Simulated scan of single mutants.
Amino acid sequence: MIEAENLEVEKGGSLVLSVASFTAEVGAVTGLIGPSGCGKSTMLNCLGLLERVDRGTLRIDGMDLTRPSNAQRGKFWKDRAAFVFQDYGIIEDWTAQENILLRKTGRFSRTRGKSSVYEALDFVGLTGRGNETASYLSGGEKQRLSIARTLHKKASYIFADEPTASLDTENRRRVIDLLTACAASGATVIVATHDEDMMRACDTTYDLRQ
């Protein structure tokens, strides 16, 4: 569970985020909604320990991480958190499997002990694409590949920033279904979005205009 109280962030002397109370439950999709510029990405980055807050309290599983040490942030990113971004976060000249593992590996097959990578690819509808260079994938396929990376990591917390933006209807639906499946499997999923279909798939939404 992630909880925040009286969270505030200032940039350039201006208040860009002010949230009185926020909770993201385990096994649920929590949406951050509102128009562009209302602070959705800033809030998501603060919850994921990518940005520091100026005031308030942030707790993850009961631990106060309002001002985490570098060691605490690094451990959280390495062991527990995964990020899905609008620009996919994919390394174009790496293969799909290398993007999942975040390291160069060369070619391999299921019989060489990498079945978990292929299971993740199967789950997101990219069966047989593990050795394909990521630059040959479509935008929707790259976004699904980024979700496959979170599945392989078995992240407890998934932070998604406009994950369905610029995707066609079919791929938007696929990505939404994949994120809700991650939550159903026990992850805490937090999504910043202005996509109405994504909003409807959320268990709880927070309108940052309020």
Rank of each mutant, 00 (worst) to 15 (best):
H152Y: 14
A184E: 12
V191E: 02
Y118Q: 02
A192C: 04
A187W: 09
I91R: 01
A148I: 04
Q86A: 07
E51G: 12
V53M: 13
C182R: 09
I147E: 01
T204R: 15
E3Q: 14
T111W: 13
I100F: 06
K11M: 08
L47P: 03
C38N: 01
L58F: 09
S135A: 13
I2Q: 05
F123E: 14
A120H: 07
I90P: 08
L49R: 14
K75Y: 12
G113I: 10
M199W: 02
L50V: 12
E162I: 06
A4W: 06
D54G: 14
T193F: 02
P68Q: 07
S69Y: 05
Q86D: 07
R80Q: 15
R55D: 13
E132D: 13
I147P: 02
A181W: 00
N99A: 00
N6Q: 14
D195I: 10
L17Q: 10
Y88E: 04
C182E: 11
R52S: 15
A4Y: 06
E141V: 11
Y136C: 12
E3W: 08
V9A: 04
S69D: 10
D61V: 11
I2M: 07
F108E: 00
G125N: 04
L65C: 04
A160T: 14
K142H: 01
D161T: 12
T133P: 07
Q86V: 10
E10M: 12
R173V: 04
K154I: 08
A28D: 14
Y136K: 15
L44G: 10
I190V: 15
S138A: 08
F159V: 14
R55M: 13
E92N: 11
A184G: 15
D168Q: 09
A81E: 04
V53R: 12
T133N: 11
S138K: 09
E92P: 07
G125Q: 03
T193I: 06
A71F: 11
D64H: 11
R173I: 03
C38W: 03
K11P: 00
I176V: 09
F85K: 05
D54A: 06
S185M: 09
A192H: 04
D197E: 14
R209Q: 12
A155I: 04
Q97P: 00
T105M: 13
R129K: 11
E141N: 04
W77E: 08
V175M: 03
V175Q: 01
G89R: 06
R110G: 00
R144D: 05
R144A: 05
N45S: 09
H194A: 01
G39K: 10
I147Y: 00
Q97Y: 00
S135H: 08
D87L: 02
A96P: 03
A183R: 01
A4E: 08
A28R: 15
L179P: 07
V16T: 10
E162P: 07
S41L: 14
Q86F: 01
E10D: 03
R174Y: 14
A192K: 06
R55T: 15
T127W: 00
V175Y: 02
I100Q: 02
E170S: 09
A187Q: 14
E98A: 04
T57M: 13
D122V: 08
M199A: 12
T111M: 07
E8M: 05
L167Y: 07
L126K: 02
T133R: 13
N99W: 00
T111R: 15
